[in-house]
């Protein structure tokens, strides 16, 4: 049994590889449970009335696309489907966040449902991190031009949305690095209802803001995105990938239990520590 402790790690990787790839080709359709925080995230967007003004930030780096891409796509599909809802999109974290939005998210949504400049604006990436967030929150005209180089004063939506004070809902799709900075500069000083999508490892941090009443709903990782896709009725990458993730989790939990039992039994019998 102690041979298990000396197993070549590449065997574990090979098993994980099979467990990930097999359900992608032959889906299993494992059941899905909708969490309360996911439902609140969905409901916050679903309850938006025509004329509601929203600010969204997509601050996910390219490396996190596998986990957060489905969250972003599902969120913007939902927003574009909401008739009369107007929003400004902006990125603060890194330049590739804006590229992801432009190339990977917008390509998945039906852009004909909203008129650019009248119902939505893409500000692109604003350099300056916390300073830029603070300046933008106080004055949406601060970047002077949108992501495509159009002067902001030429866009009709800018007459309705001047600062965070005009906003009805703040939506942030974030990795774990800038959640606290983003929240403390954009929605919290203006007391704006907020929902956030983050990677799995960012959930414990974001939950502290939920407990404090500053964030209402959360999408946590790929499972959150899958639940959200299920609620919106638009299946996407998250639902298609959930089978793989579930199988790997079961395998890893089993591996942790078995290896610990072997380790403890080997140690108690005076074997290798």
């Amino acid at each position: 049994m102690s041979a298990l402790l000396r197993i070549d790690r590449r065997i574990v990787w090979l098993i994980i590889l099979i467990l990930i790839f097999y359900p992608l080709i032959y889906p299993l359709g494992l059941p899905i449970h909708i969490e309360d925080l996911t439902r609140k995230y969905y409901q916050a967007i679903e309850d938006l009335q025509p004329g509601s003004l929203v600010v969204t930030t997509i601050d996910i780096e390219a490396g996190l696309w596998g986990e957060q891409g489905p969250q972003a796509i599902a969120t913007y599909k939902h927003l574009f489907d909401k008739e009369g809802v107007k929003f400004i999109q902006v990125s603060f974290y890194r330049a590739d966040c804006a590229v992801l939005f432009e190339t990977m998210v917008l390509s998945e949504v039906d852009r004909t449902k909203k008129e650019y400049g009248v119902e939505w604006i893409n500000m692109g990436y604003l350099e300056g991190k916390e300073t830029a967030m603070s300046a933008f929150a106080a004055n949406f005209m601060y970047p002077t031009k949108d992501a495509y180089g159009t002067p902001l004063e030429q866009l009709p939506l800018m007459k309705e949305m001047k600062s965070m004070e005009d906003v009805d809902l703040f939506i942030t799709v974030q990795g774990s690095g800038y959640i606290d900075t983003c929240l403390r500069q954009l929605p919290i000083p203006y007391d704006i209802p907020t929902v956030g999508a983050t990677m799995s490892m960012g959930v414990p941090d974001l939950l502290t803001y939920v407990e404090a009443g500053m964030v209402y709903g959360i999408l946590g990782g790929l499972s959150g995105a899958a639940q959200y896709e299920y609620l919106t009725g638009k299946p996407g990458l998250a639902l298609r990938g959930l089978d793989s993730l579930s199988l790997v989790h079961i395998f890893l939990i089993a591996l942790v239990i078995v290896i610990n039992i072997v380790y403890i039994s080997t140690r108690s019998s005076g074997g290798r520590e």
């Binding site: 080709i25 990782g221 993730l245 790997v248």
Partner: peptide, 18 residues
């Protein structure tokens, strides 16, 4: 949660390949 995130990142690339 970190392990979950890392696995999901790999899953993203697997989905791209498949």
């Amino acid at each position: 949660a970190t392990i979950m995130t890392r696995l999901t990142l790999f899953l993203g690339r697997a989905q791209f390949l498949v």
